[in-house]
Design a protein around this nucleic acid. Structure first.
Lengths: 203, 203
DNA sequence: TCCTGTGAAATGCTTCACAGCG
DNA sequence: CGCTGTGAAGCATTTCACAGGA
C-alpha cells in the first residue's frame, strides 16, 4: 500500500512540472497500471480531498502524501561502507533532493577513512556514535559486505539509529523499535529472471 | 511469493556452508520471520520434497528453487549508464557469483566511453545492438538519469533484450513480452521513513 | 515424536458497481 | 456528465488444524 504512495508522489511531481492543477483517479491509475478504484481507495486511506467532477488537486495531494510518508520533515542519515556501492549512494542526487541529509560516511578501513567522496569526508567507524548523537541521526544506510552487516547494524542501533536501509543480502535481526528496509540486488535480478522465464513460457 | 524464494535461497546457501544437511519449515521460517505453514505452502508450490520427521534436504531444495527461478542457467547482461551507480553495479560481486554475466557497459557520453571499470571497457551506446545480438544478451540494467531512462529502455528492447532492471525513478512503458523490475532508491527510503514513523507512533 | 502436506477458515486486498455531488 | 467515495462481491494469500508418514 505504502509502496504505491511513493509512486503517486513521483507522478504528481511530474504533473506539477507540467502545470496540471488537477488529476482524476482514472488518469493517474492508467499511468501507473492501476485501476481507478484502487487509486481512490488509496487516497481514501489518507482521508482524501477529491472534488467530484474534477479530480484531485495535484499540489495538495502531494503535500498530503508527503506528510503521511513522513517526508515533509527532513531526516538525518549516515552511510556505512565506502565501497563501490557506498560511494554511489553517497553521491546519489535522489536522496538529497527528497529531504535526506547525509551527515556522515563511515568505513572500518583506515585507508578509506581520510579520503572523501565529493565533499563528504569518510570517517572511521569508531567516530560513528559521536556523530549520530551530535547530529540526531535517525537513519542508517548499510552498504558493507554481508559478513559485517549484522555487526554494523548493531553498532548503528547502539548509537541510536531507529531505521536501517540494508543493501547487503542478509536478514538483519533487530529489536522491535528499529525498522529495516532491505534492498537485495541479486534478489531483484532473480525476480527479473523468473518473470522473463514466465513471460516466455506464456505463448 | 517469488520474492520469498530468493530469501530461502540465501538462507539455504548459508546453511550449506554450515554443513547442515536438512532443515525444518519451522526453523527456516523463524529465521526469516515467516510461519512454518507459510514455508511449507511455498515449497508445495514447487512440488516439494520434504521428508516428514526430518525436514527438507538443503542441497536439493536449493537446486529446486534455482530451477524455478531460472537461475540454474546463466544469463547475459548489459548495463547502460556509467555514472556512480552504474560503476558500482558493474563491479558488484553479487551478480557475477549468481550466474549473471556482464557482457558490456554502455554510455552515451563519449568521454566515459573509452575508459573502463576494472577490466570492463565502457562502450558507446551506438555499439549496443551489435553486442546484444552477438552475445545473445537477454537482460539489461538501466542506471541512467530519469530523463533518458525511457529512451534507453526503447533502445535495449529494439536490440532484443527481454528483461529490464530499472534503477531510475520512472515508470517505464514496455511491450508485453518484456519484463521489468524497478528499484527506486528514493522510494525505499520513503518506505523506511514511513515505517519508522509508524513504529514511533505505536507506543 | 517430530515434521510434512493440505483441506478449511480467516484475513487482507482488489475490483465492481453505483449513489451522490459539482 | 465526469468523477468521487464506498458498501459489497470477488480473489488471493496467510494461518489454522490435523491426518498421516518416517
Amino acid at each position: 500500500v505504502v509502496r504505491r504512495l511513493s509512486l503517486y508522489l513521483r507522478q504528481l511531481d511530474a504533473l506539477r512540472v507540467l502545470g496540471k492543477p488537477t488529476i482524476s483517479s482514472r488518469e493517474l491509475g492508467d499511468s501507473l497500471r492501476l485501476t481507478d478504484a484502487q487509486v481512490r481507495k488509496d487516497f481514501a486511506y489518507l482521508s482524501a480531498l477529491g472534488v467530484a467532477g474534477r479530480g484531485y488537486p495535484v499540489e495538495e495531494l502531494a503535500t498530503r502524501i508527503r506528510s503521511t510518508l513522513g517526508t515533509d520533515r527532513s531526516w538525518n542519515v549516515v552511510l556505512v561502507g565506502a565501497g563501490n556501492l557506498g560511494r554511489a549512494l553517497a553521491a546519489y542526487q535522489g536522496f538529497a533532493s527528497k529531504g535526506f541529509l547525509l551527515r556522515g560516511v563511515f568505513d572500518v578501513d583506515a585507508a578509506k577513512a581520510g579520503s572523501s567522496i565529493g565533499d563528504i569526508p569518510i570517517a572511521l567507524m569508531s567516530t560513528l556514535p559521536e556523530v549520530v548523537k551530535r547530529e540526531s541521526v535517525q537513519l542508517g544506510v548499510i552498504a558493507v559486505p554481508p559478513t559485517s552487516a549484522q555487526d554494523v547494524a548493531d553498532q548503528l542501533i547502539d548509537a541510536g539509529v531507529v531505521g536501517l536501509l540494508n543493501f547487503s543480502p542478509v536478514q538483519l535481526s533487530v529489536p522491535q523499535r528499529v525498522s529495516v528496509v532491505s534492498v537485495d540486488l541479486a534478489a531483484q535480478m532473480e525476480q527479473l529472471v523468473f518473470q522473463v522465464s514466465a513471460n516466455a513460457a506464456r505463448k
